[in-house]
Design a protein around this nucleic acid. Sequence first.
RNA 1: GCCGAAGUGGCGAAAUGGCAGACGCGGAGCACUCAAAAUGCUUUUCCGAAAGGAGUGCGGGUUCAAGUCCCGCCUUCGGCACCA
Length: 827
Amino acid sequence: MSISESEENVYDVSAIQDKWLPIWDELRPFASGKEGDTRPKKYVLDMFPYPSGDLHMGHAEAYALGDVISRYWVQRGFNVMHPIGWDAFGLPAENAAIKRGLDPRGWTYDNIEQQRSSMRRYACSFDWDRVIRTCDPLYYRWNQWLFLEFYNKGLAYRKNSMVNWCPSCQTVLANEQVVGGLCERCDSVVTKKALTQWFFKVTEYADRLLDDLDTLEGNWPSKVISMQRNWIGRSYGADVEFEIEGRTEPVTVYTTRPDTLYGATFMVVAADAALAAELVSDSSPAIQAEFATYLEKVKQSNDIERLSTEREKTGIFTGRYAINPVNGERLPIWAADYVLADYGHGAIMAVPAHDQRDWDFARTFDLPIRQVVDTGEGDPNTLGFATVGDGVLVNSGDLNGLSKTEAIAKMTQILEGKGKGKAAKNFRLRDWLISRQRYWGTPIPIIHCDSCGEVPVPADQLPVELPSAEGLDLSPKGTSPLGGAADWVNVSCPKCGAAAKRDTDTMDTFVDSSWYFLRFLSPNSTEVAFDLEQAKQWAPVDQYVGGVTHAILHLLYARFFTKVLHDLGYVDFEEPFTRLLNQGMVLMNGSAMSKSRGNLVRLSEQLDEHGVDAIRLTMAFAGPPEDDIDWADVSPAGSAKFLARAWRLANDVSSSVGVDFKTGDKAVRKAVHSFLRDFGHNIETFKFNVGVAKIMELVNVLRKAVDTGVGAADPAVREGVEEIAKAISLFAPYTAEDMWAQLGHQPGVALATFASVDESLLVESSIVAVVQVDGKLRDKFEVAVDITEEALREQALASDAVQRAIGDKTIANVIVRAPKLVNIATK
RNA sequence: GCCGAAGUGGCGAAAUGGCAGACGCGGAGCACUCAAAAUGCUUUUCCGAAAGGAGUGCGGGUUCAAGUCCCGCCUUCGGCACCA
């Protein structure tokens, strides 16, 4: 081989990348929504990134996998919309701005440009005509519009509540920013603070959010469905009314165990609930003082203490008594912090015999424990723990002898008859706190007027644009930085014209991402949030791809928004994401990559070293997409080697474009078409690693065919290599495009549809039958596919190896599954 | 504590109840080369020279046949966690 020949034959990754990028810019193969496109639609969506810097390995995995799906459907002849945008509001921009004394805008838009350019190099199949950035007024104006739609429907409201507070950052934190009781950013211990905040009424949709999960079964990872079910946490039980001595109004408690009402020996109210303070206010000064001290301690407590499992129960006696509605017993009322103010009614009936927490409390304060369910384990008084299982009711009047389930039903009935209670349900889910005392977010479009109260900003005055950050103190101080923008805050009331002030809070960025998938339908509209006709055509999202970190919050909120939009008549579906794929994480040496761990792998360096295609292929081939990839365990060099091997094959093909494949070698064609059949199935079931393996197998078959078989000129070889180029295009678009060109085609392999499977080529005339003796493989031989059971049985028994294995044992049974298998069972 | 998922070669992993380990990484060997790289080919679960035997976390079960189904454990990972 001469030197010049060998140079032609070298797979030069960077040259290929440089060659095709500008051509694709011209070609724009992934523009969607052109007039008159008759292809069936498919909406494929990757979770949009936060512009925190350049793309990292995690993005590289997510977008590689999303691209496999998106490109696959294009090549199956679908009109695919695969848009991208940026979730561009949020704390990191603000923190960077504070640190450098800059406007968060500059930092954000710079990062977006960097990520956009990296995505182009990474050959993401995005439709670049549909880009959105949530920090554009063009976008967040519609957050405000939606907020007002929610507000008008009573789904957005303001209330005072205890929220997470970081004493060091001087700001409220979202639940997701509290990690193990510590502030995500500064590791300070998070405490609680009472503040008036905006909420969205997610709880009103709790039943539907839970029940509709059933419709996602099979199309969403079961893990995500069960996490959402747990998070919503519906429980069934009863509300029970207790008269309180010296109080006109009864107190209602929620219980899942109304059957144990005869076992109630005391009542507990949440120490930080209004009820506790009220009850104590009529007690002795000594109790009032004790309560005040206790309440102070409770307010100081933090999640670290709360999370401790060994924690002793604490509480104080309020000096008040409740009356058990079924037996008239006087129950002392305690205030404690193990009862939550914001769940149920903030008060419980304590049944220490059958609830471990009540048992612990009873033991700490020497309160009676009365068994009312015999579970067969014994008396909780002497057992040392509460018995919570099923059993037979005792010491319970009319309930005696009933099972737990029967007793729950009967007690509920009794209470309803007496007007002392009713069946009830409760949710773990709380309303969504959306206000943030932060600058870099969507301003809440409400004006506070002394005489008119909360006044929505009129629709024609939207958007309420963020004032310039210039001159504003963005540093955390417990109130929103927007409060410092006097010109912006002070307005006249839209209703009465008097002096009024804007709401200075901004919205949680999860609001932005709760409906962005609809904005892609008409990304630049100044008339509507999203075009209703376009929504009919494209939505809902057929395939959503993203990390499992968003399994609860983002997906729950987006589902909530969709249901609200449905009820408002804007969309005709109730679930936003028909199918969901969660990709795993990219690790290095067993743990998540981070600078502080010193195990950070830089995407840009990987791309420089191995090429875009090899990295993308490695992401897909490493294993099942939902599994984590440990970068130390995979071989981008191996991927590059395979791509070069496939590429050389295109180089070798010597037949010309348009040659009649039907004249090609049958055996090779059979391999090609059985590949086509398997590959499509693998991709559609997300077995990308297996799909890649199938391509490798076909490449190996064709390499052999070229070198030692039918030769490079056989039409079947061209047929095979063309399909390989198309298949590789899902993973390695540069290599595929270059192969396509070598094969003599015009640019645009990404739009080349797969050949349909020729079933006639797959019909087998013979097959290898296996013979087992007692389940163990003993022989195999080729037989005709239509061999009769008798003939196969005879042939199996005639085998020397089989006879050797049977030896002197007696044959008990012979199972024949013609033509594939014979199993001989001996005694 | 509650809910869920997963345990298969040296490694990443395949396997509609029907040949365990496809495909790849790594290893070994051969060819090409003055040589190396690259490439191509062969081989690679373990024990055994071989015949053969063992083998999918552990213990049972169903079945002609179990990595796969059922029961009971163990381990690892993820989520929730005083939710009455």
